[in-house]
Design a binder for these strands. Sequence first.
DNA 1: TGACGTACTATGTCTGATATAGTAGTTATA
DNA 2: TATAACTACTATATCAGACATAGTACGTCA
Lengths: 106, 106
Amino acid sequence: MISSDVIRGYTDIIILYLLMDEPGYGYEISRKITDRSQGLYTMKETTLYSAFNRLESNGYLRSFSGTETGGKTRTYYELTPQGRIHYQLKKDEWIVTKKVVDQFIK
Amino acid sequence: MISSDVIRGYTDIIILYLLMDEPGYGYEISRKITDRSQGLYTMKETTLYSAFNRLESNGYLRSFSGTETGGKTRTYYELTPQGRIHYQLKKDEWIVTKKVVDQFIK
DNA sequence: TGACGTACTATGTCTGATATAGTAGTTATA
DNA sequence: TATAACTACTATATCAGACATAGTACGTCA
């Protein structure tokens, strides 16, 4: 299982990627993460929701309420232009990190 | 530049790798990290020395004093058998992490 | 009706990376 | 020969992100 220290710093990439093409909400994103990683990683609820807050207060996400059929209310998040830029930067950092760490793999 | 959140969790791999074949000491390891990463990453002194302490108290490293020509004393660190196991586990985790994060790269 | 799934919020803890500062011996340079 | 730069650390405190724990509340299905 992937430890918290190892995944730290990549939650941004994961979440922003899944909001790239359309808005999404917590529970949905959570399931998509598990699916897309083939069960290799499941983001804890608290990690996800606190990341939403952080990303929003940094200006990378914007939230709005949506009411679904059934009357339940959800909070949706969508990427801002700065969010797209942040994603690119984090992605570039990831590429470099891979290159660096791979130098220390035997 | 690689941020603290992104490198977090990989300092173990980096340090243990460099102690794989022979003991080493702080300043030397520090320079080797910068060299081997082609200057893409420089580990902060405090990060390195606190990692030494952590790795030693976890039983992954063992330390001993060495006196060099000139009279200066250094603290050398060498890998323990558990340290080698830890390296393997961290390495496996790194492989999985790469696979996971790459699923979220566009 | 009660378990399970959905969709969160609140609060507090822990750890690893880092900032800041200081000590002290060695070597190069002007 | 003074002093700056390099070597080789230690001590202390801070910060942020991941996570544990707990709780709320609505919907659905057996």
